[in-house]
Design a protein around this nucleic acid. Structure first.
Lengths: 143, 143
DNA sequence: TTAGATGCAAATCTTTTGCAGTGCG
DNA sequence: CGCACTGCAAAAGATTTGCATCTAA
């Protein structure tokens, strides 16, 4: 499935997913989710804010933070931890890893099929809920 | 090798490693590195600061930040990215993954031998320098 | 002796919060 | 209509910076 099809599918299901989660479907939430569903760039809150401003000039950065956090807690988004102090978000919540360029900060998706069957040694009572795989390095553009 | 042996070895090599990196061996740097080499708790800068204060009452938090960043850039420490906005550091720079408890924030080391041979699909010109594997979940104490 | 390191205070950057007003259902 | 949501402004929290002073080599 290509990016366009993903976008279409995600936007089609968005109102229903909000209702299921008990969330109201507002212009702000729709614009934020759409922006994230349409990009492969893994934007920061600030970037999301700038991207939706043309469409919603009165939106506030605080709202963007609140909505991103809400979406993340409801599993609509993945939050990517980086060594920098800004969060990055990804509307693709399916299993995949990330390639982070330590030079320019770009983040690209990468399949991690090989990791799916990773052997987790006995960790006592630790209950694993999800796995995060990040490759650090330098991207093609920076080399 | 147990934790004590690791600590001893790391502290023995510390001055030489500093010199090799062109860094002066100060009381502050020694105390900070020792604190990190002696713990398995993956402390934040604030926690490092509080831990070394009894020994060096006049040390500043800014110095702790500067030293941690310096050590990280020279490969003495690993910086662990979490979803929270505080950094966490680890003196164990050998290959291993982390178990992060999403409830209490504790971080435990975990061997990831299975991941060593992970197949990285062709990513064009992306040059991978290191791999980060994080398991999220809930630790035994929190359950 | 001197380049590099520290400590302090202020600045910056990111994220969160309280609250009055707004709008979705 | 009511409760959840938004926008604003202010606060909080994390990290960085400039600079005068100090110290390891």
């Amino acid at each position: 499935m290509d990016a366009q099809a993903h976008l279409h599918e995600r936007m089609r299901d968005f109102p229903q997913r909000c209702r299921s989660a008990g969330l109201k479907v507002t212009h702000q939430r729709t614009a934020i989710y759409q922006m994230l569903a349409a990009t492969e760039r893994h934007p920061s809150p600030e970037e999301v804010y700038e991207a939706v401003r043309p469409e919603l000039p009165s939106i506030s950065l605080a709202t963007v933070y609140k909505v991103l956090d809400l979406f993340h807690h409801h599993g609509f988004l993945r939050k990517i931890s980086t060594e920098k102090q800004v969060a990055r978000y990804d509307a693709n919540v399916g299993e995949h890893g990330h390639l982070i360029c330590d030079r320019c900060g770009s983040i690209k998706d990468v399949p991690v099929d090989g990791v799916a069957g990773i052997h987790l040694p006995d960790q006592g009572a630790f209950a694993v809920s999800r796995l995060e795989v990040v490759f650090h390095g330098v991207c093609g553009d920076c080399r």
